[in-house]
Each structure stands twice: as C-alpha cells, then as structure tokens.
Design a protein around this nucleic acid. Structure first.
Length: 315
DNA sequence: AAGACGAAAGTGGTTGA
DNA sequence: TCAACAACTTTCGTCTT
C-alpha cells in the first residue's frame, strides 16, 4: 500500500465527485482537516477512504514492469522506517529457480538471524514495541494514516530525548497519539485516547505536557471548531447544521463568549443550537454523548451563547 | 414518559503564597 | 505544601412537550 503524499492529498480529494455512500454530488471540501464531507448523508471521506493504489495505470504486464520503479514507500510506522532488507519467505533464488533442499536449512537459519539482527539495539526494540501498541490504539480509534505517521515521528523524537525510560511505553504512546491528533487539527479527547489504552487519563495528560514541553511541539490549545466536523458526522447532521454551527462559533469568538471554557462543551452547545434552528433536533443527551460532556455543561454553554449572542430559538 | 431546566454539592486539577 | 479557585460533573427535584 502506498502512502498518500501530503501535497497530493488535495489533488486526490479533488478527484472525488460523488459520495461513495449515497452517491450525492454535494461534497464540502475541508482541506485543513484533510476531509471531504458529504452534505447529504454526513459521511466524512478522509484519506483512508481514498484509493491508495499506485498513481499510474498499467494496461499490460510490460507497462507494469516499466512503470513500477520504486520499492515500498518509506514509513515511520515500521521501526526501521521500512528501509531494511527483507529475506523473502519463498524458497527461490534470484532467478526464480527453486532452492535445493540441501541449502534450505541454511536459508532458514539465515532468515532467523536476520530477523533478530534487524531489531538490534534496545532503542530499536523499544520503538518496535511501541509501534505495535500504537497501531493497536490507532486502529481502535479509526485514526487516519497521517496521524499514525506523525505520532510515530514524535515517538522517535521522544526516544531520542530519553523520555521513555522510567515511563510506561503505553503512556508515552498514548500521549504521542494525542499530540499527533492535536497537531493535525483533528483532536480526540483525552477520554477517547484513554479508553483504548491501559493507562489513566491523568497519566496521558501528564506525559503529553512533558512531551510538548521537552520536544517543543508548540501545539496550540484545541478550539471548538475543530470538533464540529466529527461531532456532526457522528450525529448524522446535515451540512447546513455544520455551517450554522461554524457561524455561531465565529460570532462567539468575536464576543469572547466561551473563552476559557472547555472547547468540547462549547462545540456541543453550538451544534445543539444549530440543529434546533435548522430543525434537525437532537436531544442534549445525544449530543452530550458524542461530545463527551454532560447535559448540564451543554445547558450552561447554551445559555451563555443564547444570552450573549442574542439568538432567538423558537420552540 | 422523555426531555429540558436549574440548584446545590462534589470532583480533580491548577495556581500562587 | 496547602488553600483558594474555576471548570465541569453528579444528583435530584421540577417543569414542559
């Protein structure tokens, strides 16, 4: 599988004209989040949805031969970045002839040691372990490839800075995933990350702060806007609601409403109001569920927004 | 009966002396 | 190290649809 190069992502998203779910052509492009969103059914099409095959097409074997000019792409999610030699498991020599039984045993031993040598230093072993854990968590959270690559890169830096010793690999991995999501502006809450790891939310938060400080990641605090896409699509709300919610947040920001408050709560309230206005009512309970806050918090933010923005909500 | 509302007390973390 | 503090949660009774 090929990794989608960052600069190509936009082009690839541009090529999609139809929602694979409902076939609608009303697609909203949101390059900042690397997403394409169907206005009709709310499906979020991100790069994991995109065909990740080669960028060329081959019409016969000869063309394939000619065009296939590179090996596997470099990746940060394999501990040696996928650049090391692999010994094939096939008992064939380089000409494709079968290897005689006499030398097979030799070949087996060679493979065994080669595998062992590949993961040699303790740092390598640590990274190999960590990437496995990371893969598990990322898969549970449905995180796009981009995030995994970023997280892997951050983890490598953390190892280089000797940050892992004395801390559990699990907590550092969780923190890097959290950081990677934030950096790519598709934040997950600490709760979400904690739910797929064996360490506490508190631990992850602490490790994240340390990570951010020592590596100088310079990640700004997340904003309510960053959550609108995801919450709305989980609530199956239309593009119109999203637009309204964004508009509400923009005005709220100008007036300084909700500053210093938890961004998920503000996002949840904005969505609640927007859904009411458009007539796609969702209960506070439902929204609270996906936003990971309580109904009370939604009510409080909701009240502030309605009061300070002078929004009329007809019941 | 479910949802919305709001008061009051509780929780875990930050801040500043 | 401790207390004050802000944000948020939990809990519960009441009102609305």
């Amino acid at each position: 599988m090929k990794t989608v190069k960052k600069k190509d992502k936009k082009e690839i998203l541009d090529q999609i004209t139809r929602c694979p779910e409902c076939g609608s052509t009303h697609l909203v492009r949101d390059y900042e989040h690397g997403e394409l969103v169907c206005e009709d059914c709310g499906l979020v099409i991100d790069e994991t949805y995109v065909d990740q095959g080669p960028e060329w097409r081959a019409f016969d074997a000869a063309q394939r031969e000619e065009r296939e000019r590179t090996g596997a792409p470099m990746t940060y999610t394999i501990h040696d970045k996928g650049l090391s030699t692999e010994i094939s498991w096939k008992n064939r020599d380089s000409y494709g002839r079968p290897v005689p039984t006499r030398t097979r045993a030799q070949l087996y031993r060679l493979r065994k040691w080669h595998r062992r040598i590949k993961v040699s230093s303790s740092a390598d072993r640590n990274i190999a372990d960590a990437l496995q854990i990371m893969e598990r968590m990322a898969a549970n959270l449905d995180l796009p490839k981009d995030v995994r690559e970023t997280a892997a890169l951050i983890y490598r830096k953390a190892v280089r800075e000797n940050m892992v010793r004395g801390r559990s690999i699990e907590s550092v991995v969780a923190a890097t995933l959290y950081a990677a999501c934030r950096q790519l502006k598709i934040p997950r809450t600490l709760d979400e990350i904690a739910s797929v790891s064996r360490v506490s939310k508190k631990d992850i938060g602490r490790t994240y702060r340390l990570l951010s400080r020592t590596l100088g990641l310079g990640i700004s605090p997340s904003e309510p806007e960053d959550y609108i896409e995801r919450f709305c699509s989980r609530l199956r709300l239309s593009g119109e609601v999203k637009k309204k919610a964004y508009a509400i947040l923009r005005r709220a920001k100008e007036l300084g409403v909700g500053r210093g408050k938890g961004p998920t709560g503000v996002a949840a309230a904005a969505i609640y109001i927007a859904a009411l206005q458009v007539g796609e009512r969702r209960t506070q309970r439902e929204i609270a569920e996906v936003a990971g806050v309580t109904e009370v918090t939604i009510r409080n933010r909701y009240k502030e927004l309605v009061d300070k923005l002078g929004i009329e909500v007809e019941v």
